[in-house]
Design a protein around this nucleic acid. Structure first.
Lengths: 266, 266
DNA sequence: CGCGTTCTTGATCGGTGTCAACATAAGTGG
DNA sequence: CCACTTATGTTGACACCGATCAAGAACGCG
């Protein structure tokens, strides 16, 4: 996926070793967490929170197809994905379920509860997964105590907002081929960012979920995947995908879609 | 527009009288500001900021087609629209300009700078407009000093994020007819929320801007508007729109579009 | 092994983008 | 104030993408 001016990833950039509040609780240490490079809690702890154990709570396992949280659940903790994958589902105007995002290791979940203190969306595990709980009360305390922590979290929210705006603009204006290509490249780069292979990975979600996310029917997803495969751009076997010609996929995104807005640039 | 579980409006709900930091500066008082009911700065001031004048800065006039801020501008202040209207424009993957939102009196602008401290988008005035400047440094100080102010702002960001997610999901999955209907009803209710007529108002943006926003061509916008008019749902003369049959427009949004995601609800 | 779920593939049709021409308004300069 | 130019909006003809309905295939799970 080529660099995008407003496409960004959530989470901090803590690359250093972090204090390890989990070792005392019997769980495996944070230092071996695969999500460490993007762990917000770790970054927050480094930034002056005097009691990181107040922020980083326990772990929670979520089985496949189970909900991590549901609409109207009170927001007590945010969640950082430790392993596995989730989809975020919203009820649209007609009460239909629509997938609005996929989350993997290191991604932060639960921000939809910030507005009212109750979650507005549903987070569903696509496979057996595990999350770290981040006490929201503790986070608020940390933000009150440390301006650096406050800034860090505000910046994180800003990044999330920008990313949503970018995907929104993209999905509204691109044609199906481009949306699916964007999705595949996005999944690829996120896998790569976690240290896994960016050229060969497994899609944990169904074709229907993909279709709901990019705004097309499952049949079209299937057909487009078939076309990509036929063009030699990817290899596919069920949910296993291999990126065979990333350049062509990226070129696909650059084709002109719906005419852009008129530019008045004073 | 029928109530939406995750469609919300940004801004606080301060309905009470607010201290008036502007009177000392020669500008007209906040108490007569048409945007008062949704003024975040006022609400923040009420919530324990000891020095609201640190937050609420001066005013700024922006002429039609002029930019309030541009990408890479440093974020020094947020802006609350006092009069007039703005569009928010992003550069998408191909460097094309895409309209991602419209903002009118009471709406908050500049949040796209939170992520990096520099604005990522461009805010362009659709007509001669005026904004209130809200010092970001002052806002940060207020949040550090007052947990209530912190919570208020976090909630605001949460609301903005949810609204973006809602419109994103809607725009990706609905057909053109429904998107334009959504847009018109949205404009109508926002005008009404400001005390203006919700059944007769003027669109300040071009057809091209509308099309860019909802993801269709200007020709289709024109055609769809013509169809709505022919159906007796609206009256149109150039940019003047009247909502003639709101019920039919709302019904339009309830028609089933792209199939929803499969519901597994444990 | 049998059955439901998920995925693929095909035929058909409506919705929208595209290109073109034209109409009208807005802005500009004499 | 008018004539000119440009931006903006409307309308039409046509092609193509993608939804729809239907049937069949492949896998997962009991």
């Amino acid at each position: 996926m080529k660099p995008h001016p407003i496409a960004v990833v959530p989470g901090g950039q803590a690359e250093l070793a972090v204090p390890d509040p989990m070792t005392a609780q019997g769980g495996s240490a944070c230092s071996v967490c695969p999500a460490l490079p993007t762990c917000m809690a770790g970054a927050m702890g480094m930034l002056g929170c005097t009691a990181p154990e107040l922020i980083i709570g326990g772990r929670r396992k979520v089985g496949r197809h189970q909900s991590l949280y549901r609409p109207n659940d009170v927001l007590a903790t945010l969640f950082q994905v430790r392993s596995g994958q989730f989809k975020l589902v919203a009820l649209d105007l007609m009460g239909e379920q629509r997938v609005i995002g996929f989350y993997m290791a290191g991604d932060l979940l639960g921000l939809d509860g910030l507005a009212t203190g109750q979650h507005q969306l549903r987070a569903v595990a696509l496979e057996d997964s595990e999350v770290c709980e981040i006490s929201y009360a503790g986070l608020q305390a940390a933000m009150s105590a440390s301006p650096a922590a406050l800034r860090q979290f505000i910046q994180l929210l800003g990044h999330v907002s920008l990313r949503e705006a970018a995907t929104s603009a993209f999905m509204s204006n691109m044609r199906c081929e481009q949306r699916l290509g964007y999705f595949l490249l996005n999944m690829s780069s996120r896998h790569a960012a976690l240290g896994y292979s960016g050229t060969s990975f497994m899609l944990r979600m169904s074709r229907a979920d993909i279709g709901s996310y990019v705004g097309i029917t499952p049949e079209s997803v299937s057909r487009l995947i078939g076309r990509f495969k036929h063009n030699g751009w990817i290899t596919v076997q069920r949910r296993n995908v291999g990126i065979a010609d990333r350049e062509q996929l990226q070129r696909l995104l650059s084709a002109d879609p719906i005419p852009a807005a008129h530019s008045s640039v004073p």
